[in-house]
């Protein structure tokens, strides 16, 4: 018989809770069933595919993605979280504007069915933000992308377009890399 916990968190900049929740609730269920944030996808449910990746912002350790299917509210209690619903910006009218990563995925036709996309967006977003704080040499970009996207499974597109989109964002955004772009321009 699971106990209960008193849960609060910041989710996409909004204070959530206090909520009285089963202490063994997994985050994906909180998002979908309690908060109506249905953009986070549940697929394998056992931490293998990363479709459900959400972002946890830690002011000290930086941001990271965690699989919402196997990460419990017990661990996320009190933390600052972003889900796919919190990635796009807003224009003056309050309409959503895709983030650079989201726009690049659209431009590159990176996804087909899109089931995996929220996870890819979050992983790429964390990578771009990390490079904003700590730029890396241009020649290390490909490895960094591979490492960031590697845990994510996509059954439709074969990954190349996701990969190219993220590479585009990183190389065309000033301040994310050190060195010249020319070196990295050679075909992947």
């Amino acid at each position: 018989m699971a106990g209960r916990i008193n849960f609060t968190a910041s989710i996409n900049g909004q204070q959530v809770g206090p909520l009285d929740l089963p202490e063994d609730l997994m985050m994906v269920e909180l998002l979908q069933e309690y908060l109506n944030l249905t953009g986070t996808r549940l697929s394998c449910g056992q931490g293998v595919c990363s479709a459900c990746a959400i972002i946890v912002d830690d002011p000290e350790g930086g941001s990271r993605t965690v699989p919402a299917c196997i990460t419990g509210v017990a661990w996320l209690n009190g933390k600052t979280v972003r889900t796919i619903e919190g990635i796009a910006g807003r224009d003056e009218q309050g309409d959503p504007v895709p983030s650079p990563v989201q726009q690049a995925f659209l431009d590159h036709f990176s996804f087909q069915c899109s089931y995996c996309t929220p996870g890819f967006v979050n992983a790429a977003t964390v990578l771009v933000e990390r490079l904003e704080r700590a730029p890396i040499p241009v020649e290390d970009v490909e490895d960094a992308i591979l490492k960031a996207l590697d845990p994510h499974i996509c059954r439709c597109t074969g990954y190349v377009r996701y990969y190219q989109a993220v590479r585009d964002v990183i190389l065309s955004t000033p301040g994310l890399t050190i060195g010249t772009v020319a070196a990295a321009e050679r075909p992947a």
Binding site: I5, Q46, C69, I70, G72, V73, A74
Partner: peptide, 23 residues
């Protein structure tokens, strides 16, 4: 207990029962 439920129980189960062929 909170760490276990938050980080481990998703695969290993609330009562440590695990899942065949995965955890």
């Amino acid at each position: 207990h909170a760490l276990y439920l938050g980080l481990c129980a998703g695969c290993h189960g609330d009562n440590g029962q695990g899942q065949p062929h995965s955890s």
